[in-house]
Every structure is written in C-alpha cells, then in structure tokens.
C-alpha cells in the first residue's frame, strides 16, 4: 500500500505528507506517476466560487489513467473550512467519480491531531484490506 499526493507551490499538502513520515509519490504537473499497487490519494481542494474545478488539474490527469485509478483505495482531502460547504470538496468529487470513500479531510497543512488520526486510519485501512484479500 502506498500514498500519492498533489501539492501546489503553496506546499501545504507537501508539508502534511512530510509530517506523516510515510513514503509517498508526488504528482507533479508534468508527468504523473503511474500507480501499480493499491494506494491512497491526498489532494488539496481548489474550487471556484460555484464549487467547480475542485480537483486540481494534475490530479485529474493522474486519475485519467485507468490502471492507476483501478488501484485507488480512497482519498484524503485538504482544504480550509472558511470555504464553507466547499470545505474539502475535492474529496467528495473524487469519491463520487471513482467509487472510493473519502477517508478524511484536514485544513491547510494539518494539525498534530490530523497526523495521528491519518496514521492510525491508514493502518486500520491496510489491515482491513489485507484481511479481505486473504
């Protein structure tokens, strides 16, 4: 099981992933990585005023690869509660389009509590997936 993430030049999601301390594949605008094993995606939200375009373009290009998409197990969304109903909307959009659960939402680069909950959650998820696979 792996992680893939996107972070723009403001770097919040990258700082979140660095503090998680787990190996993770960065999605860069140029050539998106191809995932060959089950993975969880971490992405910020960038919607317009109407909630459109919530999922960053490089993430869409990454998910357009059917093989990669087939290995997606869930999504964790970054954002900011100040965006009201659009808080972490990228998580809902990807969950609906790819048929995977939105596992968690966090604000900006995440707090210590977010890091703990995501580490524990990922552990729990890996265990469940391994036991259903066995």
């Amino acid at each position: 099981m792996r992680l893939a993430y996107y972070s723009s030049s403001s770097g919040n999601t990258a700082r979140f992933v660095a503090r998680l301390g787990l190996p993770a594949e960065r999605i860069l605008p140029g050539a998106p990585p191809r995932m060959t094993d089950p993975f969880v995606l971490i992405t910020p939200t960038y919607a317009d005023g109407e909630g459109r375009g919530a999922v960053p373009k490089p993430v869409i290009r990454f998910l357009n690869d059917a093989d990669t998409r087939g290995h997606l197990m869930g999504v964790i969304a970054g954002g900011n509660r100040n965006f009201g109903e659009a808080f972490g909307l990228a998580g809902d959009v990807i969950a609906a389009k790819c048929g995977v659960p939105c596992l968690y939402r966090f604000e900006l680069a995440g707090t210590a509590g977010d890091i703990t909950r995501v580490r524990q959650g990922l552990d729990r998820l890996w265990t469940q997936i391994r036991s259903t696979a066995a």
């Binding site: 869930g74 964790i76 100040n82 009201g84 808080f87 998580g91 939105c102 968690y104 939402r105």
Partner: peptide, 12 residues
C-alpha cells in the same frame, strides 16, 4: 462555519 461539510462521516 462550514455547514454540511461534516454530514458525511469520513472513514478515519
């Protein structure tokens, strides 16, 4: 602050 954002209980 963010109405409806917490309605769907995320797995974690």
């Amino acid at each position: 602050l963010s109405p409806n954002a917490d309605e769907n209980h995320d797995f974690f």
